[in-house]
Amino acid sequence: MISALPTADLSAGLRADVRRLMDLAFLGNFDDDDFDHALGGTHFLVEQRGTLVAHAAVVQRSFLYEGRAYRCGYVEAVATHPDHRGQGLAAEVMAAAEAVIDRAYDLGALSASTAGRGLYVHRGWLPWRGRTAVLAPEGLTPTPEDDDSTFVRPVPGGPDLDLEATLACDYRNGDVW
């Protein structure tokens, strides 16, 4: 069963469990900035026998598209414990995250690792084919290193997205996408 909790309702122990799961699932390639990016929104958690085995988070970000700012439900920290992979748990937490995005945001977005792309494509997420950028302190800055890893989820009532256009995210420490 999936639990949905805002960051403010995560106990210190559960928050530490989320961090441990990320470190384990991403083989130590999940730094403090990455963890910070997953906080401040809603966490979707699957626990089995008292162990956290799957997680995804949706945080609100501001995206610039075609000269207008939009509320984006940005997916962060999608992971399944290595001993529990292949059971559909990532799909479960993603389904819960997508339901929130569809009801509360203008669009969804995420940055996919090579290993995660299949999950997102299978779930109907669309690869962004245009350019990506960040609204950095020095102004709009292209992020060509993120052009091939950005995926979007159009939502009912959201903007009609031209996947060949430029999409810009708000600035944050660490990886901006």
Rank of each mutant, 00 (worst) to 15 (best):
C72A: 15
L21F: 08
H55I: 02
V59Y: 02
R49N: 14
E66I: 00
D36T: 13
L24A: 13
Y65H: 15
V53P: 02
Y74F: 14
F30I: 06
S62E: 10
G50R: 05
L64Y: 00
D36Q: 13
E47N: 03
Q48D: 11
S62Q: 13
R68Q: 14
R19H: 15
R68Y: 03
G41I: 08
H84G: 00
P82S: 11
G73E: 10
C72K: 04
V75T: 06
L64S: 02
T42K: 12
V78A: 12
L64F: 02
D83C: 06
R85Q: 15
F63H: 15
Y70F: 15
H43W: 12
L64T: 01
H81Q: 11
R61K: 13
V59W: 00
A77M: 10
E47A: 09
A25P: 10
L52V: 07
Q48C: 02
L39C: 15
Y74K: 01
R61N: 03
T42R: 15
A57F: 03
Q87N: 13
G40R: 08
F26M: 02
G86T: 09
R71L: 15
L64D: 01
H43V: 08
L21C: 07
G86A: 12
T80I: 01
D33K: 00
D36F: 08
L45E: 05
